[in-house]
Nucleic acid binder design. Sequence first.
DNA 1: CTCACAGCCTGTTTGC
DNA 2: TGCAAACAGGCTGTGA
Length: 273
Amino acid sequence: MPPELPEVETTRRGLAEALPGRVVRSLLVAERRLRRPVATGLARRIEGQSVRAIERRGKYLILRLDSGGLLIHLGMSGSLRLVPAGEPSRTHDRWTLVFREGTALRMHDPRRFSLLQYSARPENDPLVRDLGPEPLETPEEELARHLRARAAGRRGAVKAFLMDGRVIAGLGNIYANEALHRAGVRPGRASGRVRAAEWARLAAAIHAVLEDALASGGSTLRDYLGVDGRAGLFRLRLDVYGRAGEGCRRCGTEIRSLRLSGRGSYYCPRCQS
DNA sequence: CTCACAGCCTGTTTGC
DNA sequence: TGCAAACAGGCTGTGA
């Protein structure tokens, strides 16, 4: 299961408890070939800087430094962990950010879809600049209006629309499926044909599913040194994602699956129209 | 602008 | 049983 927005936010909270004030001693890069190559001069650029804050934009983490900051993305299989400085790397550990205070932040990422990049102005970096509103920080009614306005005239599937980061930040395949089920909207519907009342239900459902996942992940936050991006997802009970052929938890009808824009999509033919 | 799809990658599942 | 092919998906770039 990939880290989605709630897992990234859980990770952010863990880092925010531990990192601010720490000073970067070194960056050890074991594998440069990630989603983008890790810049050669990155280590030198950040050594000696202290961590000011940890922010999140969609599924990107922003580690604010004295000057500029690091953009970090977990990709499909990445997870961050705080480890004691000097702990040996294992297979698939990609880089380790070592702090003077004796701890280190380590990226574990088997599939190398993760990203580590310095930016002088992280919030203006093209990677995050064009992202849509934060689903958890946008009031429900505003979110509903926004989605409806952006969907006008679009004929593509509503699930693909919800997964477009420029429309709304950080909603991945799993939670797009779950939100559509909670809202009673089929994933293959044309975005422009979803009605106002349905957008209202969708906005509420997006909030609900993300908050649920966040709540279940939050309780496992205090593992050893705190950060495990996986904890939340393992605890959230999914209603439709990956449940093709099984019974809908609400009505018992068999969950169906189809492919939309190359992505697995799941819905209940009775609960969702 | 909108939309679909290839490509990146490796662990896991499926199918012969 | 064993191996190869298919699958999984966030994001970007490309082309229609």
